[in-house]
Nucleic acid binder design. Structure first.
Length: 500
RNA sequence: GGUCCUGUGGCCGAGUGGCUAGGCAGAGCUCUGCAAAAGCUCGUACAGCGGUUCGAAUCCGCUCGGGACCUCCA
């Protein structure tokens, strides 16, 4: 197996990946906070990690993929007091907090399914792990890295920083961080401005609260990931991932918590995916420039010229490296839509080529072309091993497309490629397109009746063409086109059709 | 202010110090009753200015422009 290289945010360089236990990988990815619909920026992260997950499995690793659902404790404001997001939303909508959680969890799963993301192997919830979080906080307290103020437990960042570099993940010095922190005003019960809450005292009217050694309250945001990753993957595990926006606070605090509790940094490799942007600015909930998946699939959004399918969006994301920002535009999406169609059709053509059993004829084989194909296919793994470079894999695939089409169109003589080369191409494209890249056919499947009807029309049109009755034949083709069905006359006299 | 990232042909986007991805759009040609599709060919781009080097889009410096994080957000 060739070496897999991963860009590790912690060291800011590509490193050869070696798992803690040979053959096994523990991967934790920060999941959604289910108090509202996921937007496309969130989806990008989960699609990126879905491809990473699929590729790791392809490499033969047994992967435990943990992605949490945050359903408690995520504070609304930037101060560690006040309502959590669920209580606030619940009050607005006159619902139980768990109804909010249920609604948006289901919605999230639906969207993940539409994008053809595999489910993680474990999807733990914060509310399901309150006791684990309390246990961890107790440890951090007894280790001396936290303090209690009136029922709320804070992490002592400055004390921690005396022993371990707090800003290690984003390469920041504590002094710089302190300098950069804005005065937030209000009475602050924290000792240090960077201190964050592990456990928050609940007011009586709080809808979500649990008993703890420090009284009724709810957990801080960061502790859930530390507690759950620790529980399912161990104190130290292989990969921790999430969006880049989480690195500076959430992941920084996770590292501090794990160090303060277990004296070990939780993950050996940190993978951060970059942001999806709209007109150059980050798509985010607070900026209000987010697209919801549903708006995209229906085209019902003021910035969208048309609807785009889930696979178009997935393909669109694959064309960019996960660590680059990706800008969202109609033009780029339309380019992706056409590119995907072309690629997928070539894939289907290739897949349908039957390999006959006769021996290769060395006189017909084109060794240069044959080598080119082999190298292009070999380049798939090579590109993926280089920090999951999906864009380069696609570039190689697109170089195969004209070759595949030429085999069908006759520009390349049959037998020009060795049979084992063709077989390799079929196998690897099957592994990569529906497999690792998770693309799937979006043509309607229940077209059994449609099939018959179209075939009939094609037959009628063929008769008309044979009579040179082009008025009729063109009418059939044009009318079908209006219905979204395109006819293509092939060189051999046959006609194929496809849904637009 | 601090920590970083980034600036590639009309658009989107990979990229290794020399072999100059790929997609979309555009032009021409082939095929075709016409069309679509497909095939072939074509635009020779790397913000600017210096420097290192035999050689840099790729390394270094400066300038200008964009963005992220430092405050809830994947």
């Amino acid at each position: 197996m060739a070496e897999l290289k991963i860009f590790n945010s912690l060291t800011r360089q590509k490193e050869i990946f070696t798992p803690l236990t040979p053959g096994y990988i523990g991967m934790y990815v920060c999941g959604p906070t289910v108090y509202s619909d996921v937007h496309l920026g969130n989806c990008r992260t989960f699609i990126s990690f879905d491809i990473i997950y699929r590729y790791l499995k392809y490499l033969g690793f047994k992967v435990r993929y943990v992605r949490n659902i945050t359903d408690a404790g995520h504070l609304e404001g930037d101060r560690d007091e006040g309502d959590d997001k669920f209580s606030k939303k619940a009050r607005l909508e006159q619902l139980e907090p768990m109804e909010i959680v249920q609604r948006y969890t289901l919605g999230f799963h639906k969207v993940m399914e539409l994008f053809n993301n595999l489910p993680p192997t474990i999807e733990p919830t914060a509310t399901g792990h309150i006791s684990e979080q309390i246990e961890m906080i107790k440890h951090i307290l007894s280790n001396g890295y936290a303090y209690i103020v009136d029922g709320t437990v804070y992490f002592d960042v400055e004390k921690y920083n005396k022993e371990k570099p707090y800003g290690i993940l984003t390469n920041r010095k504590l002094e710089d961080l302190l300098e950069g922190t804005r005065e937030l005003g209000g009475q602050d019960e924290k000792k240090g401005r960077l201190d964050f809450a592990l456990w928050i005292k609940a007011k009586p009217e709080h809808l979500m609260q649990w008993p703890s050694p420090w009284g009724m309250g709810f957990p801080g945001w960061h502790i859930e990931c530390s507690a759950m990753s620790g529980k399912y993957l161990g104190k130290e595990f292989d990969i921790h991932g999430g969006g880049m926006d989480l690195a500076a606070t959430h992941h920084t605090n996770e590292i501090a918590q794990s160090q303060a509790c277990f004296h070990v940094s939780p993950a050996r490799y940190w993978i951060h995916t970059n942001m999806l942007t709209v007109n150059g600015a980050r798509m985010s909930k607070s900026a209000g420039n987010g697209f919801l998946p549903g708006e995209l699939f229906t085209g019902n959004h003021k910035l969208l010229e048309k609807a785009y399918s889930p696979m178009t969006v997935r393909f669109f994301m694959l064309q960019t490296h996960y660590r680059s920002t990706l800008d969202f535009s109609n033009e780029a999406l339309q380019a992706a839509e056409k590119g995907l169609k072309r690629l997928w059709e070539a894939y289907e053509i290739l897949d349908q080529i039957k390999l006959d059993t006769t021996e290769d004829n060395p006189n017909i084989i084109d060794p240069i072309l044959d080598d080119k194909c082999k190298n292009l296919v070999a380049g798939f793994d090579e590109a993926m091993n280089d920090d999951f470079n999906t864009a380069r894999v696609l570039a190689n695939m697109f170089e195969l497309v004209p070759i595949i089409n030429s085999i069908k169109g006759g520009q390349i003589a049959p037998g020009s490629l060795r049979k084992d080369t063709l077989e390799l191409m079929q196998k690897q494209l099957r592994i990569y397109l529906p497999g690792i890249f998770g693309l799937r056919d979006e043509k309607s499947n229940d077209s059994g009746i449609l099939d018959g009807v179209i075939e009939l029309l094609i037959q009628i049109r063929k008769d008309a063409r044979n009579r040179k009755d082009f008025a009729t034949s063109d009418k059939i083709r044009n009318e079908l086109l209006i219905q979204g069905i395109a006819l293509k006359d092939e060189k051999n006299g046959g006609t194929t059709w496809s849904l637009l």
